[in-house]
Computed example of a mutant assay.
Amino acid sequence: MKITTGLNPYGLTWYLGLQGAGTPRHNPNGVGLGGFIRLTQELGGKAIELWDGWLRDKSDAELASLRQRLDDLGWKRVISSGLQQGDMDMLIRVARALDARFIRVALTPILCGDRAAAGQRWHELVRSVHEKLEAAVPKLEAADVVLLIENHQDFTSRELVGLCEEYGPHVRIVFDMANTFPVAESPLDFTRVIAPYVRHCHVKDYRVHFEPDGFRLVRCPSGDGCVPHKEMFDILAKHNDEMVACIEIGALEARHVKLYTPEWWHGYAPKEAEALAACLLAAHKNRFAEGDDWRTPWERNADHELIEYELGQYRKSAANLKALGLM
């Protein structure tokens, strides 16, 4: 399988000026889209994921100029947004203007697999996902654009496959390779289920800190944590001749998955013990020792460390993936 690898912006939110935007705690000197393109060049990327907030107000001429720049670089490109708040007409317009075949969306704002915390709102969100996908598909078909739905710590592997099968070939999956743990699935099990439907990957990783009520997922360079990227790409290769992949580092806030509590399981189908055991076993690789400080600089209020922290993790990720032959 040919893998074309580049960068995703969401692990660079402080450096880019996205973290805390509009609040007192933000980086007023964020480098924005221009700086993101320069970093992708520096790290040798050949693909780029573009946040829709950078694009929605651009004129046709500005979009044409950006497309020419990306064409000159020879980069694959993916437009990134969310299904609940994104404007599908705008996203399709931007995708066509930039010659981007894929639009990536998170389906809901639920994190940490915590459907129970959302209460009745979880069921309302699921209904909304179906309504929005049904409305989007005719537009996607007319534009010949594919909507990529992400496993964004909310839906299980089989639920994502169900959405793809229900809404057809213009709805496929962007695979966040570290987001299997928040829904209590092991990376390899999740990959085996969704592999035929994956068209784009977020090459992300986590180190785990175990807690009395579950575990925390803490960002780290891709290749330094518990995600077996090489083995996952080997599975994907059985179903795909080529793949676009983007390095993504996790959020500046660790994700607390409280799956040792009965409440957390509300809203999930019953799970076999062997499958849960596979998830927990995978999470032990490169885990934090008891008593280690797992907090990021953001969580320690050490904002002065954040730029080097984010850039260092992306640079280490690129080096790790190059060593694995994945970039």
Score class of each variant (00 low, 15 high):
289 A>G: 13
222 S>A: 15
223 G>F: 11
29 N>P: 02
73 L>S: 03
65 S>G: 00
268 Y>M: 09
176 D>W: 07
64 A>W: 06
186 S>H: 05
47 A>C: 05
166 E>A: 10
313 Q>F: 00
89 D>A: 09
77 R>N: 06
218 V>F: 05
97 A>Q: 02
298 W>D: 08
195 A>W: 07
132 K>R: 15
41 Q>C: 06
228 P>C: 03
199 R>E: 13
210 F>A: 11
45 G>D: 04
229 H>W: 09
19 Q>N: 12
301 N>S: 08
96 R>F: 07
77 R>S: 04
283 A>I: 04
276 L>Q: 10
318 A>S: 12
210 F>V: 00
72 D>Q: 15
325 G>D: 10
267 G>F: 15
128 S>E: 15
130 H>T: 13
247 I>C: 11
228 P>L: 08
17 G>M: 13
285 K>R: 14
160 L>A: 11
2 K>N: 14
247 I>L: 14
177 M>L: 15
285 K>E: 08
253 E>H: 11
58 K>V: 01
11 G>P: 09
232 M>G: 08
296 T>R: 06
40 T>G: 01
44 G>P: 02
327 M>N: 09
87 D>T: 10
112 C>A: 15
66 L>M: 09
146 V>A: 01
61 A>Y: 05
217 L>S: 03
19 Q>H: 14
19 Q>F: 03
183 V>L: 04
23 T>K: 06
68 Q>E: 12
72 D>S: 12
25 R>Q: 14
262 P>I: 04
275 A>V: 07
117 A>M: 07
35 G>Q: 14
154 D>Q: 02
55 L>S: 10
27 N>A: 03
298 W>R: 03
155 F>V: 01
196 P>N: 11
2 K>Q: 13
49 E>C: 09
16 L>A: 05
88 M>S: 05
205 D>E: 11
202 H>S: 03
141 E>H: 09
87 D>H: 03
138 P>K: 10
247 I>W: 00
68 Q>C: 06
43 L>I: 10
56 R>C: 02
128 S>W: 05
10 Y>T: 00
151 N>S: 08
77 R>M: 04
182 P>H: 09
2 K>Y: 07
299 E>T: 03
78 V>P: 08
205 D>I: 04
155 F>H: 06
44 G>T: 13
154 D>K: 08
199 R>A: 07
58 K>I: 01
50 L>A: 09
67 R>N: 08
41 Q>N: 08
34 G>L: 13
